[in-house]
Amino acid sequence: MNMDATDRRLIAATQGGFPLAPAPYAEVASWLGLTEDEVITRLGKMLDSGIIRRIAVAPNHYALGMMANGMSVWDVDDAHAIEMGAKVGALEFVSHCYLRPRALPDWPYNLFAMIHGATRDEVEVKRREISRLLEPFCHSNDILYSTRILKKTGLRLTDPGA
C-alpha cells in the first residue's frame, strides 16, 4: 500500500493512542481537518494492508506483576519450525515469538520466544512447558535474561516533510 501525506499525518496523530472518548475517530478527524468517514476508511485500509497490525490495548507487564522476563531461544527442526512457532506464540505467557536465521557455529537457535512471569522461577517453569511442547523437534535451548537496559528509544516516524 502506498501511503500519502494524509496517511502519515494520521499515523503521527494516533501513534500515541486514540482519544478515550465516545467518538474517537471523529475527534481524530477534527484534529486533522478530515471527516470521520475518511479517518475510518483510511484506518481500515491500513489494517487490511498490514500497516496497522491491530488496534488494541497495550498492557504494562510490569504493572500487571510480570516483573521477570527472559528471551528463550530454541533450535527447532526447519521442517517443523513454522508449525511449532505458531504453537509457542499461542501460549498465554509468551508476548513475542519470532523465527530468525541461525548464526552457526555461534548460534544454533532459530525460534525466539519472550517469556513473562512474576519471578524468574516462574519464567523457568514456563520455559520447561515450552520445552515439553517442542520436545520431538527441538535439539537445544537457552534463555537470556536482560541484566541492563543500555538504550531505549521509541519508534520514530520520519517527518512527512523530510
Binding site: M1, G16, S49, I51, I52, I55, V57
Partner: peptide, 30 residues
Amino acid sequence: SEDSLISHLRHLREIGAITRFGPFFDAEAM
C-alpha cells in the same frame, strides 16, 4: 455500557496498567 468501558480504560491508563490504547503500526510495512 459505552461510558463504563471508557471510564475503565481511563482508569487503567491512569494507574499504569496499560500504556496505551490505539493502533499498533508495523514499521516494516511502512
